[in-house]
Amino acid sequence: MKSLLVVRNPVLSFSIDRRLPMVAALLIALSLTAILLNVSQGEYPIAIADILKTLLGLDTGNPNHPFVIQTMRLPRTLVAFMVGVALAISGTIFQGLTRNPLADPSMIGINAGASLAAVSTIVLFPAAPLYILPIASFLGALLMAVLIYRLAWNDGSSPILLILLGIGLSAIATALTNLLIIFGAIANVSQAIVWLAGSVYGRTWLQFWAFLPWCLCGIPLALGLSRHLNVLHLGDDVAKGLGTRLEWQRGLLVIVAVALGGSAVATAGTIGFVGLMAPHIGRKLVGGNHQNLLPIAALIGGLLVTIADWLGRTLFAPTELPCGTIVAAIGAPFFLSLLIHHRKR
């Protein structure tokens, strides 16, 4: 029998799975291992012991190590992990809000809105400061979310209609993005195309520090709102019966999910399926309680993108594949298996 610690909550009683600390510790260990492995591998391999010495400020006897580790590899690896965390939390929130296990930021249209805003900034305003890109992506994703939410409103918001509208508006945003690429200047378009592939190639500490505030604000908010997500996941009628301020809490969760998803897209481009896979894997490990699921899904998402970046750099070296391509190669069959499973049910 599963061991559960029952905790009483004034809004909803929930169960904390005793497996959570063990699973979290295992995922943290795997994530640290993946980060070290990603930093150590490449055309210039470095022993993990030398990486640790360099990070601790100890002399390894090789003057190239600090530059390769701290300037070239560590920032892109940390960005990859943080992007995976943000996308996983965003996908978990959207699956909970829509009560649809096939939902993720790309299906809701969030990624498409963020991509349209980011590509517009890259193509039309190439001289814009770096910190503008996450802001533009967030505004584009938020505008898309508000538009979908407003169109779906009919004395309350329908989860199914939110999905359908997201698919339709995502197609429109993608068409507009393609128009910008077709008619934009070739230098700016080349940058936008590489960015759209979903990659952390060339990411530096500038991108890391620009992305970090979004994670520091969004992740704690998402974890703090997890019990409200539990209530909303039960359905509108049950949530109203429990005295939940339904639309206010749903709107706040949407803003948090949009902020994390939009800023992740601005930082690494369109990396799909992370927000779809991480919550499902997390549910298998710790169950569906979002207070358990959100941190576990976040670690799984960070681990997925970090491993995808490592595989993209090493599988066909010296040719480098975008991590978005690696994730898609795993995520597409995963999505099809989910679709077939739910069709049979």
Rank of each mutant, 00 (worst) to 15 (best):
S3W: 10
V7N: 00
S15L: 12
I16S: 03
R18A: 03
R18C: 06
R19Q: 08
L20F: 02
P21V: 13
M22S: 09
A24M: 14
A24P: 01
L26P: 02
A29K: 05
L30A: 13
L32S: 06
L37E: 15
Q41T: 14
Q41P: 01
G42F: 04
G42Y: 09
P45E: 15
P45R: 05
I46V: 06
D50S: 07
D50W: 05
I51F: 15
G57T: 15
G61N: 09
N62L: 03
P63E: 14
N64G: 10
T71V: 11
T71G: 00
M72R: 03
M72K: 07
A88E: 10
A88Y: 12
I89L: 07
I89H: 04
G91Y: 10
I93N: 08
Q95P: 00
R99I: 10
P101T: 09
L102C: 01
P105D: 05
A114N: 01
S115D: 03
A117M: 07
A118K: 06
V119L: 02
V123P: 00
L124F: 05
F125H: 13
A127F: 07
L139S: 08
G140H: 14
G140M: 02
A145T: 03
V146I: 12
V146D: 15
I148H: 01
L151W: 04
N154P: 08
G156Y: 09
I160A: 14
L161C: 08
L165G: 11
L169V: 09
I172R: 06
T174C: 07
T177P: 02
L179Y: 08
G184K: 02
N188R: 10
A192P: 03
A192G: 05
W195Q: 14
G198R: 01
V200S: 12
W205K: 15
W214F: 12
L216I: 15
C217L: 11
P220V: 08
L225E: 06
L225F: 02
L225M: 08
R227C: 01
R227L: 06
N230I: 14
V231P: 07
G235Q: 14
V238P: 00
V238L: 15
L242I: 10
T244D: 13
R245L: 09
R245H: 15
L253V: 09
L253F: 09
V256T: 15
V258K: 12
G261C: 07
S263A: 13
A264Y: 07
A264P: 02
A266P: 00
G272R: 00
M277F: 04
A278Q: 06
H280K: 13
R283A: 10
R283F: 11
K284P: 00
K284V: 11
G287N: 10
G287F: 11
H290C: 09
I296L: 06
A298W: 09
V305I: 14
I307E: 05
I307H: 03
W310L: 06
L315W: 15
F316E: 09
A317Y: 14
T325L: 03
T325V: 14
V327I: 11
H341C: 05
K344Y: 01
R345Q: 12
